[in-house]
Simulated assay, not measured.
Amino acid sequence: MEKNNNEVNRREFLKVTTKFTAATIFIGLGSSALFGANTGNQKKMSIPTVTLNNGVVMPRLGFGTNTLADAVGVRSVSEAISVGYRLIDTAHIYGNEAAVGEGIRQSGIDRKELFLTSKLWVDFAGYENTKKAFETSIKKLGVDYLDLYLIHRPRGDVKGSWLAMEELVKAGKIRAIGVSNFDPEQMKELLSYAKIAPAINQIETNVFFQEKDLYPLLKGSATQIEAWSPLAAGRGGIFSNPILAAIGKKYQKSIAQVCLRWHYQRGVVTIPRSSQKAHMIENLNIFDFELAESDMQTIATLDLNTTQFPEWK
């Protein structure tokens, strides 16, 4: 993935266009908040939430961890939690579940305050394999339940995997289940036998790939859209795009903040990833401005209608 040049571009743009403070953003997701109780004394800015189709409450902005492994992963997760993230996303294939778990422990936060996601990889599709893979994941993470468990890709015995995940929900081991990278036909097939409808479809969507076919279908369904790599992992020159830069200058916001706000206004949950604490904080500061409809329409013109991650196809 493109890292060095994009990271430099992002930092330079931040210096020029953004005046932000390193204020901590906080969301309380303890058991009382999850069931709608009013805590009454939160003075810090809260990350907005969405209620999934089974009543579970999920933050609309979280922290992605793909490629953040070993010591970097531990530090990044701990720092992300310290600055206010409560939704943490990982997966078996990332090879960092143990690091994520250690980062959570080092943060000192109560597990119940977090919304933790992991994903089932294709090698473990099927009923029995899914149950074993789930147990391996929670053991590595050092937790006894997941808030969200996703089928990472629509491969192999999806039906068997879904049945196992439904049973894990009933057993209280998973609070919500969903899928990732499922297209409309694959969603239709899943819904033909699912007793529990998927709460999430985590897909590639960004300003260069706006999913103009899948997006409206999901928006009109009971399945919440979540974007992996919502900043396109820096690909396509996103952090030096002149159109996004001009919009950012208008609001005194960075390109990353403009993109994340665009997702937010489209009703998409996002999980941006960064190993830089300043960027973690920057990504949280998107709730004090609103993109005008004209800016939303301008961003729509950036759609190339093609994946920025061809290696995933």
Rank of each mutant, 00 (worst) to 15 (best):
G178T: 00
I200F: 03
Q308E: 13
M187G: 00
K253S: 04
N241P: 10
F115L: 10
I247C: 12
V56F: 01
A176R: 07
Q202R: 01
P154T: 10
R273K: 15
D123W: 11
K188Y: 03
F182I: 09
I247W: 04
I238D: 11
W228A: 04
G36N: 13
S294I: 14
L148D: 10
S137H: 04
A278F: 01
H263P: 08
Y264N: 12
S161G: 06
I177E: 01
A133M: 07
N201M: 05
P310R: 08
V100P: 12
E102N: 13
N283P: 08
Y149R: 07
V16H: 08
L146Q: 08
L190T: 04
A91C: 12
D89H: 07
A233F: 07
S254K: 10
M296E: 02
R175P: 00
D110S: 11
V169M: 11
L260D: 01
G236V: 07
A133F: 02
D70V: 02
L14D: 11
E128F: 06
G101Q: 09
V179C: 06
L114N: 02
K195D: 12
D303H: 10
K44W: 06
W162I: 00
S137I: 03
K131C: 03
E79Q: 14
G84V: 09
L114W: 05
F134L: 12
R273C: 04
L120K: 10
E113D: 14
L191G: 07
L29C: 14
I104H: 08
S46R: 11
I281D: 00
P242N: 13
G160T: 03
G101K: 12
F239H: 15
N41P: 00
G84E: 07
Y149C: 03
E12N: 15
A80K: 02
K112Q: 14
K119C: 05
G156M: 09
E282T: 14
A99I: 12
Y85M: 03
I238H: 03
S78D: 02
Q297Y: 04
E185V: 07
Y251S: 11
I27H: 01
V269G: 04
K159G: 03
N4V: 14
K112V: 02
R175D: 00
Q257Y: 12
H263T: 13
G156E: 05
L141G: 06
A278P: 01
N54P: 06
Y149N: 04
G36C: 08
A232V: 11
K250M: 06
T223Y: 02
K43C: 03
T24L: 10
E226S: 12
S229I: 06
R155N: 08
L29E: 00
Y94C: 10
L114P: 08
L141T: 08
Q257A: 05
A33S: 15
A232L: 08
P48F: 10
Q257L: 08
M165Y: 00
A245F: 10
T223M: 11
A222E: 14
E102W: 01
D89A: 11
F134T: 04
Q106A: 07
R75Q: 14
W162A: 03
I196S: 04
A164S: 10
K188N: 12
M187H: 06
T67P: 09
D144L: 05
A199H: 07
S46M: 14
I174H: 01
S31Y: 08
T130M: 09
